[in-house]
């Protein structure tokens, strides 16, 4: 079986500047893959190369085994693309735009699907409006509808939720999950890391044009972050001593430890009188921490030891 999307040693230079630098990864069928990176990392450039908006400098992109340059029509018809910037459409109405777009993908009669998408994305009442008469969030949804008229096997979402309110973001993500369940493979970029953590099966982190890390979301968090254990204690306590201890205050202590350790192991050294424990809080590491860690790894001598004394 061919992978839905394979990116092989893709580079894109603007003059001497390497916007994308030798990036390789592949999407697995039916997964949601999050491409994360700070502003200017090269996410949009990478996606633009995949949809041939930009000509790559070198490398190869394959869609279900076919190179996008050798079989442009076959490969393009399997991709739905939502650009980062909203596109205007002059005189045409929402419904007309979707009809044109269906036709561009070879489907001349597509009313049923168009109605479904308009309905699903709550654009039904706006079907006769022009793009400039829509609000920002509606425009976003139109972009998404446009990308879905031909039931693409692969959906590329470049920051689909930028400038979208929280409620709409959630409903968009619900929709993305629904698409995933129906077999669509999704590649998305976003700056909302919490949402990416919840949504994405796998994450790729790109920085200054090169791919720094690819892995399952849960694995990245496990490998790159520490779990935090906070305990509220009563009464006066001795000075605890443990290599996992990061802070101790009058009535509380905080421990940090890698996720592969069992809690018993961690608290063993404390020699704790459990009757003094009032409450326990366990905080898991987040994708955000893992993300920042990946970005900082390359800033050579940046100490990752963040055991700064904390205020009580």
């Amino acid at each position: 079986m061919h992978k839905p999307l394979e990116i092989l040693n893709l580079s894109k230079n603007y003059g001497a500047f390497k916007a994308v630098d030798d990036v390789s990864f592949a999407l697995e069928e039916g997964e949601i893959f999050g491409l994360l990176g700070p502003n200017g990392a090269g996410k949009t450039t990478l996606i633009s190369c995949v949809v041939t908006l930009e000509n790559m400098t070198s490398g190869k992109v394959k869609v279900f085994g076919d190179s996008i340059l050798d079989k442009p029509k076959e490969t393009k018809s399997k991709i739905g693309y939502v650009p980062q910037e909203v596109v205007n459409h002059g005189y045409f109405t929402v419904e007309e735009i979707l009809k044109f777009y269906s036709g561009f993908f070879g489907i001349l009669r597509n009313q049923e699907k168009i109605d479904y998408l308009l309905n699903r994305l709550s654009l039904d009442v706006h079907r006769n409006k022009k793009v400039k008469q829509l609000s920002g969030g509606m425009k976003r949804r139109l972009m998404i509808a446009k990308a879905l008229v031909h039931d693409p096997k692969i959906l590329l979402l470049d920051e689909p939720t930028a400038g979208v309110d929280i409620e709409l973001r959630n409903s968009l993500w619900d929709f993305v999950v629904e698409l995933k369940k129906s077999g669509t493979t999704v590649l998305l970029t976003t700056h909302y890391l919490e949402e990416a953590e919840e949504l994405c099966d796998r994450i790729g982190v790109i920085h200054n044009g090169s791919l720094r890390k690819v892995g399952r979301t849960s694995d990245l968090i496990q490998d790159l972050t520490l779990r935090k254990l906070e305990m509220q204690l009563s009464g006066k306590n001795k000075e605890f001593n443990s290599k996992y201890l990061v802070s101790q205050c009058e009535e509380s202590i905080e421990l940090e430890f890698p996720s592969n350790l069992e809690i018993g192991e961690v608290v063993k050294d404390l020699d704790l009188d459990w009757s003094t424990v009032k409450d326990i809080h366990l905080k898991e590491g987040s994708l955000e921490e893992a993300f920042l860690r990946i970005l900082n790894e390359n800033n050579a001598n940046n100490s990752t030891n963040n055991s700064v004394e904390r205020d009580c």
Binding site: F100, G103, F104, F105, G106, I107
Partner: peptide, 21 residues
């Protein structure tokens, strides 16, 4: 049943769009 022809229909639709424009 909707039919999809990615070889000729896109051309037809672009022509139609140009005229509609």
């Amino acid at each position: 049943m909707k039919t999809q022809n990615i070889y000729f229909n896109p051309f037809l639709m672009l022509l139609w769009k140009e005229i509609r424009r």
